[in-house]
Each structure stands twice: as structure tokens, then as C-alpha cells.
Computed example of a mutant assay.
Amino acid sequence: MKITKWGPEEKKQWLEQAVIEKNYQRDVLDRIFALSNSYRREKYGQLSYDPERYPIYALLSQNWVDGKPTALITAGVHGYEVGGIYAALEFLETTALEYADKFNLVVVPCVSPWGYETNNRWNPHAVDPNRSFCVENKAEESTLLKQFAATIPGEIAVHIDLHETTDRDKTVFRPALAARDGVDIPIEEIPQGFYLVADEERPELPFQEAVIRSVEKVTRIADKDEEGKILGKPAVSHGVIYYPMRELGLSGTLTNARFHTTTEVYPDGDWMTAEESVEGQLAAIRGGLDYVIKNPG
């Protein structure tokens, strides 16, 4: 049976079904503004479809030191993956200043606030921001982040992008993707635990493995399946897979940082709590930064 690709009317119907479920101002912006005494707050854009409701901010080290390596943490590229957003904020609130003498810090807690509020992977135009980093203006959220990242001075030594792989990927997103594009897309099983996606062009496997070692102290790492794969990709190490990030337009292309990883946490298991999911993300940040401190290049 042929699947008919969405046109403007189908996208309009999809958008009309979106419902505000969370409050970006209260959950994210209020916490960002509360941190303004400890970090330099920079508004790097606002989303044109509702600019008053959706300004986007980064928080940067107050005492920026030229020549010091920069650590960039991004979250909420997929707004419905809330654990990464909360972890980025908690990192700023509890941990980031411990690394202030080693790095210039830049943290973007929520790249896609509409997706956060409506529990969506896509933006209102049914475009996936994390498939849009290599195509200018395909997704406003990605373009604004790229433009901001280009203004960060000095060397970005490490970039950690916080994501989740949720049950909603299987039950909502992949069926919608198949309908939008008019193609048959296999429904893959969700990895049961934490794993990392590295850029196949610059994998830096020892860095990925250091992150995994940090995370496995607080939560489970996803096992490979019977074919030795995680989410359809060969597991190159415990909890690590490679993706062609440039080909797919993923956030890993945002910088040329030698050390990059995309975290993925499964938050929906009976054995997982929201707190443990966030702690896994925090452990990933700490593990990555600690490795770069010990192995600067």
C-alpha cells in the first residue's frame, strides 16, 4: 500500500493537534534568569512564529579567559527530550562552577522551546531541528544555534549534546515521519539504557568510553542486540555507536570540536526515575569534561 506524502494541508492538521503541555517560561526561563548572577546571560535569538513566548538563551562564563578551551553543552534540540534540558540547568546550578578554572563554559539549555512545551520532536513546520544543521534555514532553531556558535571566541574543545531516546520515538515520531515523507520506515526497538552517538568522522573512542564509564556509575548502559547493534548501528564499544553526522545534518556538525558526543538516555523504563535519567546526563558531562582536562590534545 502506497503512503501519501504530507502536503501543506496535512502539516496544518498535524500542527492543529499540538497542545501546550509544559511551561517554558516557568520551567526553563525562570531558572536561566535566576542564574544571571553567576553566568553571563546572552539572548541569541527568538523564534519568529512566537518571538515573545520563545526567546532562546545561552549562559556563558562571566570571567571569560582568552586562550582557555571552551566547553559547549547543548540540550533540547529535540524539545520533548526533557531530561537533557533539566540536566543542563542542573549542571549550571550545581556543578559548572567547579570547571570554571579549566574551561570557558557555554550552555544552551533549550534549543527548541516550542517542542518542549508541546512534547514534540519537530518544530511547528514539521521539520526536525536535529536533521537540519547542514542546511541553512531549514529549521530556524538549528540556524539560530549555528549562528550563535559561530560567534563563540576561541577554540571549542568539547561539545556535548544532551538527548533522550523515549518510547514516544516508537509510538509517535516514527509513524509520523513515515506519514510525512510517504515512506515505509521500520520501527526499531528502543535501547534499554544509556548510550552515546559519536561522529564517524572524528569518533575519539577513548573519550566516548570515558563518558560511558562515568555514566555507568549512576545508571545502566544499553546492551547491544543479538546482531551486535544499538538502534540499528553496530556497537563499536560498550554503549557507543557511530553516525554519519554531516550526512544526516546532526548537531555534531555544529562545531569542529575534537571531542564531541551526543548522549541518549532511555527515561521510560520501569527501573528508571526522572532523577536517575538526569543524573546520567550529569555524569556524562562530568565524564567528558574530566577526560578533556586529562587529555587536552
Rank of each mutant, 00 (worst) to 15 (best):
M272K: 06
R213Q: 14
S237D: 11
A18Y: 12
R202A: 15
K229M: 13
T273S: 12
A178C: 08
G269P: 00
G79A: 01
F173L: 12
D101N: 15
A87K: 02
R41A: 14
I241D: 04
C134R: 13
V127T: 08
A150E: 14
F33E: 11
S48V: 07
E10T: 03
V197H: 09
I85C: 05
K102S: 14
E16N: 15
A87M: 04
P244S: 06
Q13M: 12
V215I: 05
Y44E: 02
K68V: 01
R31W: 07
R258Q: 13
S132H: 03
S61N: 06
H260D: 12
D66L: 09
F91W: 12
D66C: 09
G76R: 08
T253M: 10
E9Q: 14
T263R: 01
V278G: 04
A58P: 00
D50N: 15
Q62K: 15
V183Y: 06
L162W: 03
L35R: 08
E227N: 15
I241N: 01
E188V: 09
V218Q: 03
A100V: 10
A34V: 07
R131Y: 13
K224E: 11
G67Y: 00
T94Q: 15
A222T: 01
L105C: 06
R121L: 07
P109T: 09
L205K: 11
E9P: 04
P296T: 08
Y57P: 02
E81V: 06
A71D: 00
E117Q: 10
D27F: 11
Y44P: 05
P153W: 07
P51V: 01
Y291N: 03
P191G: 02
M245T: 07
G76Q: 06
Q208K: 05
P206M: 06
Q13T: 12
K22C: 12
Y57I: 05
H260S: 15
K170A: 12
G269V: 00
P69R: 04
E227L: 13
A100P: 07
Y39A: 05
S48F: 12
S237H: 03
I241A: 02
W271S: 14
S48H: 08
K2V: 13
V218L: 06
V211I: 07
E201C: 11
I160A: 00
I212W: 02
S36H: 10
V218A: 01
